[in-house]
Design a protein around this nucleic acid. Structure first.
Length: 638
DNA sequence: CTGTGTGTTGCCTCC
DNA sequence: TGGAGGCAACACACA
C-alpha cells in the first residue's frame, strides 16, 4: 500500500487542539505531511475587512506556524499565494499527494470553493477527508435534523442538537507532526484577478502579495500587512491560539464567573477589562474550539452546583446562538445574509436599500440613495458623529478596537435601523463586516436581522434609547469620556445629552455643541461636538409606526412583490413617504426633520386618540387599509 | 382552528 | 437602589 502523503489545508481552523480534521489527517500516519494555507485572492479581494482583522488573521497564522515548528523543527504553516482552485490540482501532481484533509466550512463562497477543489482532487485520484469542527454540532447535520429548514430559535437548535447527541468532547492537540515532503514548485503560477477589490480604499500601498507562490523570500512565510499594502492596525486585541488558550485558562480559573455568567447582566459600558470573554475573534479564525469553552463551562456549572446559569443567557447559551446562526446560514445559503430572496426575512422598506444583481438576485454591495438625509445619517453613524455620545462612543470603540460588547452592538444597530434612522440593516451589516474582529457572516447577518426586527425578533416597540440605555450601566459616562474626548470634562448630568448643557457649562468643559457632524472630524481637536442629528423620541415614533405598517403588509424577502417592485402598491401611498423608502423631502435642507411630516398629519384630525383603538385595530386580521401613521403616532403619544 | 405559553438582554414609573 | 408592573402586543410552537 502506498504511504499517505497528506496535505492538511488550514482555512478557518487555525489551531492544533480539538481539531477533528487535523486528528483524521494525523491518524493516517503520513509519510509526508504538509500543513498549508492558501492565500486565496477570492477571499483577499472579496472579504471586506480593515487592518485590524487582517492583523488578527496574520497573528493566528504566525502563532500556528510557531506551534507546528515547536513539534517539528522541519515544519511550519506553509503559506502559498494562489487561488486553491488552481493551485491544489498542481500540488497534487507536483508533490505526489494521496490525501487532502480540511475542516468543513459552510459559508457561501467556501462551499463553492470546496466543491471545486474536491472535484479536482477526485479527478487526480486524491482522497479528500472533511471533518466538521467549527461549531458545536455539524451545521449541515443540524439542518437535516430540523427538516431542512433554518433554525430560527434557540429551542429549535437545541432540539435538533439533542437528536444528534451530546456535543463532542475536545480532542487533545497532537504531540507529533510528521515531516513535510519535498515541495517543488515547477509549475506556472496562476495570477489572480485583483479587481474588483473591496478593500482597495483601505490599502495605502499596492498589494504585492501575489508576486510569487512562496512569498517574497521564497520560504512560504506568513504575509505581512506591508505586503498587503494595508496601514498598521489600531486594535489592542491580538490573535493566535496561544493567546486564546491563555485567556480561556484565566476564565476557567474563575469558576463562579463561568458558571453564573448571564449575558444580559454584563455591562456594555465596561472596558479595561471588558465584562465578557472577548473570545469571539478566536472562534472566527478557528484559533479556539467552541467545544472546548462549551465543556469547560459545563464542568464549571457542575462544580458550582445550584445557582449556575443556563441557556440562553449562560456561556453555553452564547455558543448555542452561534450554532443557531451557522445552521440557519447553512440551510438558506447566500440569501441568509440579505433580505431579497430570503423567505425568512421580513421585508421592511428601509432607506438606502441594497442594489441587486438582476441575474443572481444577490446584493452587489452598492445601494440606492433614496434620501440624502438618511445617507448623511449613515455617514455620521459610521464616523461616530451622530451627536448622541453613547452611540458615538461605541462606534469609535468599534472602529478603533474592532470589538464592542454585544449589548453595545444592539444599541447602535437598533439606532441605525428600527430605532432611529430607519436605514437598511444591510448597510450596518457591511460596516460591522469591515470593522469587527469577530465578524462571522452568519452571526452578523443574523444579529442585524434580529435587531432590526426583520427575523428572529419582532417586538419593535422595545426600542433601545441612545440616552437611557447607556445610563443604566454607566451613570458617570466613563465609556463616553474614554472614546469621545471632546466631552471628557462635561458634567455627568449632561454627558448623555450634551445639547442640553447651558453654554456656561459647555464653556467650562471646553466644548461647544455645534455643527452638522459632517464637516468636522471626530476627536477633541476642534473643541466642538455635533448637535444630535434628530429628536430621538420623534424618530422612535416614526420608526415604530413604519414597522407596524410593514408588519401589517406582511411581506418577506422571497415574496414576488418584493422582487418585482410591486410591493409599493401594497403600502399606503401619498403621505407615507418615509415608510415607502422614498423619503426625499429634505431637498431644501434647513432642519427638514421627518418628524414634521407626522406633525402635519397629527393635526389633521384623523386620529381617534385612544391607545386601545390602535391595539384593537392591529388585532384585526389583514386590513385593506392600514391605520395611518398619524393615527398611531397620536395614540402612542397620549 | 383557537388558545396559550414563550421568546437571551426596553423604558418608565413606582415603591 | 433594585425589582415589579404597566406599557401595547408580534411570531411561532404546540396542544
Amino acid at each position: 500500500m502506498k504511504k499517505p502523503r497528506v496535505i492538511y489545508w488550514f482555512r478557518i481552523d487555525l489551531r492544533l487542539h480539538d481539531s477533528p480534521a487535523l486528528k483524521a489527517a494525523l491518524d493516517l500516519e503520513p509519510a509526508a505531511f504538509w500543513p498549508i494555507f492558501t492565500w486565496d485572492p477570492h477571499y483577499v479581494y472579496r472579504a471586506r475587512g480593515g487592518s485590524n482583522r487582517w492583523q488578527f488573521l496574520l497573528d493566528c497564522q504566525n502563532d500556528l506556524s510557531n506551534s507546528i515548528t515547536k513539534l517539528n523543527p522541519k515544519s511550519k504553516l506553509f503559506v502559498l499565494r494562489e487561488a486553491p482552485q488552481s493551485l491544489l490540482p498542481k500540488l497534487f501532481k507536483a508533490w505526489k499527494v494521496t490525501h487532502l484533509v480540511f475542516e468543513k466550512d459552510t459559508d457561501a463562497y467556501a462551499i463553492e470553493r470546496d466543491n471545486a477543489v474536491t472535484k479536482a482532487a477526485e479527478e487526480a485520484g486524491v482522497k479528500v477527508i472533511v471533518r466538521s469542527g467549527r461549531t458545536l454540532w455539524d451545521s449541515q447535520e443540524i439542518v437535516k435534523q430540523h427538516g431542512g429548514k433554518p433554525t430560527m430559535s434557540i429551542t429549535q437548535l437545541q432540539a435538533a442538537g439533542n437528536r444528534i447527541g451530546p456535543v463532542r468532547k475536545p480532542i487533545p492537540a497532537p504531540n507529533h507532526i510528521p515531516d513535510p515532503g519535498e515541495m517543488p514548485l515547477d509549475f506556472v503560477q496562476d495570477q489572480p484577478v485583483t479587481k474588483p477589490d473591496v478593500n482597495a480604499e483601505r490599502r495605502s500601498e499596492s498589494d504585492t502579495g501575489y508576486h510569487s507562490i512562496a512569498g517574497p523570500n521564497g520560504d512560504f512565510a506568513v504575509e505581512t500587512l506591508e505586503e498587503l499594502g494595508l496601514p498598521a492596525a489600531t486594535t489592542p486585541h491580538r490573535g493566535g491560539e496561544t493567546v486564546a488558550l491563555k485567556m480561556l485558562a484565566e476564565i476557567v480559573a474563575d469558576t463562579k464567573y463561568l458558571a453564573t455568567f448571564e449575558k444580559p447582566k454584563t455591562s456594555p459600558a465596561q472596558f479595561e477589562p471588558q465584562s465578557t470573554t472577548l473570545l469571539s475573534p478566536f472562534f472566527h479564525f478557528g484559533a479556539l474550539s467552541p467545544r472546548l469553552l462549551y465543556w469547560r463551562a459545563e464542568e464549571a456549572a457542575k462544580a458550582y452546583g445550584k445557582g449556575a446559569s443556563s441557556p440562553p443567557v449562560s456561556m453555553t447559551g452564547q455558543l448555542l446562538f452561534r450554532d443557531m446562526y451557522f445552521a440557519a446560514h447553512a440551510a438558506l445559503g447566500p440569501v441568509f445574509t440579505q433580505t431579497a430572496k430570503n423567505p425568512y426575512c421580513r421585508f421592511i422598506p428601509w432607506h438606502l436599500p441594497s442594489k441587486r444583481d438582476p441575474e443572481t438576485g444577490l446584493v452587489t454591495g452598492e445601494y440606492h440613495v433614496d434620501s440624502k438625509q438618511a445617507d448623511d445619517w449613515l455617514k455620521r453613524w459610521r464616523n461616530g458623529m451622530t451627536g448622541f455620545p453613547w452611540i458615538d462612543a461605541l462606534m469609535r470603540q468599534l472602529k478603533h478596537d474592532g470589538w464592542i460588547h454585544h449589548l453595545g452592538r444592539h444599541s447602535v444597530a437598533c439606532f441605525l435601523t428600527r430605532g432611529g434612522c430607519y436605514i437598511d440593516w444591510e448597510r450596518g451589516c457591511e460596516v460591522f463586516e469591515e470593522w469587527l474582529l469577530d465578524h462571522e457572516p452568519a452571526c452578523n447577518a443574523g444579529n442585524w436581522q434580529w435587531l432590526s426586527c426583520s427575523a428572529f425578533f419582532s417586538q419593535y416597540f422595545r426600542c433601545y434609547s441612545p440616552i437611557a440605555f447607556g445610563q443604566k450601566w454607566d451613570k458617570q459616562g466613563e465609556l463616553i469620556r474614554r472614546w469621545v474626548p471632546e466631552l471628557k470634562d462635561l458634567d455627568a448630568k449632561y454627558i448623555y445629552e450634551p445639547w442640553k448643557a447651558p453654554i456656561s457649562v459647555q464653556k467650562k468643559a471646553g466644548v461647544r455643541v455645534t455643527g452638522d457632524g459632517l464637516s468636522t472630524e471626530p476627536g477633541a481637536g476642534s473643541g466642538t461636538y455635533p448637535k444630535p442629528m434628530f429628536d430621538f423620541s420623534e424618530r422612535r415614533q416614526v420608526c415604530i409606526a413604519a414597522l407596524k405598517t410593514a408588519y401589517d403588509v406582511g411581506l418577506h424577502g422571497a415574496d414576488a412583490p418584493v422582487l418585482d417592485g410591486t410591493w409599493r402598491d401594497m403600502f399606503p401611498s401619498d403621505e407615507h413617504a418615509e415608510i415607502q423608502g422614498r423619503f426625499l423631502s429634505d431637498d431644501d435642507g434647513e432642519g427638514a426633520d421627518n418628524g414634521h411630516v407626522e406633525e402635519a398629519h397629527a393635526g389633521d384630525g384623523a386620529a381617534s386618540g385612544d391607545k386601545r383603538t390602535a391595539g384593537k385595530a392591529a388585532a384585526e386580521k389583514p386590513k385593506k387599509k392600514q391605520k395611518t401613521m398619524a393615527d398611531y403616532v397620536i395614540s402612542t403619544r397620549k
